[in-house]
């Protein structure tokens, strides 16, 4: 039960312990945080199982790990390690440019990224148990996460205003399964939790995403690429819980040191954007 919590990227057992002690509700085990994946280039793949096991042994909170989009064997491997959640992630280099993993084939739950409602519903239609915004990982710039969260939440609101006769066309335009579109139009929310990911660097960023409708936050490079990871991790947890309380967010933001250096979207160019991966 991860809602209302913060899931932190960690690259080893020591970082995992820092994350747990700071109040993370789960950790994402990966070999390089997105900012380093960006910097190093090359093909980014599933993490080494030994590293994942070491992290599983070091903390009592759930451990997640990433697989490349469409790489169902990496997912089989993670499931065999009893991983708690599999993230089919655009942060890694895609393995299949046409198909995502058939997530119904697995017992382990999946989280998938989305940039808009149609994409979120396609992933849920493939069996995802949780959706997160893609944002733009490793940039420390929250602008894309805001765009994606507004697209998803706005798309849901729009569906609730439609009559039943309009829903088949809406499903066609969203390129999403009609049954799911009907369900969302009636319920006014997705059938799975929606978290934010991709660019959160400060406590205020985390609270912003919660106020925009996220049910929890993933923070990647933002913590361990900052000056004082321990304190920043705690502050981001605090801001995620008390997201409507500016005084507490202010108090948590004092004495944090420098946030990770950010990247302006225009500086990335189209090729540098990870959110375009997946379909």
């Amino acid at each position: 039960m991860l809602k209302g919590g913060v899931i932190m990227d960690v690259v080893d057992a020591d970082q995992a312990k820092i994350a747990e002690e700071a109040g993370a509700c789960a950790v994402m085990a990966l070999e390089r945080v997105p900012a380093d994946i960006r910097k190093d280039g090359g093909v980014a793949r599933m993490s080494n199982p030994r590293m994942i096991k070491e992290i599983q042994d070091s903390v009592s909170i759930p451990v997640m790990a990433k697989v490349r989009i469409g790489h169902f064997v990496e997912a089989q491997v993670l499931q065999s390690l009893s991983i708690d959640f599999i993230d089919e992630s655009e942060v890694l280099t895609p393995a299949d440019e046409t198909n995502h993993v058939d997530k119904f084939e697995f017992d382990a739950p999946f989280v998938c990224g989305a940039t808009n409602l149609g994409e979120a519903l396609r992933r849920i239609g493939e069996g995802a148990a949780m959706i997160r915004s893609k944002g733009e990982a490793g940039t420390g710039n929250v602008v894309e996460a805001v765009r994606h969260m507004r697209e998803i939440v706005g798309g849901i609101k729009h569906l609730t205003t439609l009559s039943s006769t309009e829903l088949p066309t809406a499903a066609k335009n969203l390129q999403a399964p009609l049954e799911l579109v009907r369900e969302v139009a009636t319920a006014g929310w997705l059938p799975v939790p929606v978290f934010c990911a991709g660019g959160i660097a400060t406590p205020a960023d985390a609270a912003l995403m919660m106020q925009l409708g996220a049910e929890g936050n993933f923070v990647g490079s933002g913590i361990f690429k900052s000056d004082d990871p321990e304190r920043r991790a705690k502050a981001i947890v605090e801001a995620t819980t008390h997201f409507n309380d500016p005084e507490r967010i202010a108090a948590a933001s004092e004495q944090l040191g420098e946030a990770m250096p950010g990247i302006e979207m225009a500086a990335l160019g189209e090729d540098g954007r990870l959110a375009g991966r997946g379909w």
Binding site: M1, L2, K3, G5, G23, A26, V237, E238
Partner: peptide, 12 residues
């Protein structure tokens, strides 16, 4: 939820 996280939140 996560009991470690909730316990810490209660304390904080």
């Amino acid at each position: 939820g996560e009991s470690t996280t909730i316990n810490m939140g209660i304390e904080k």
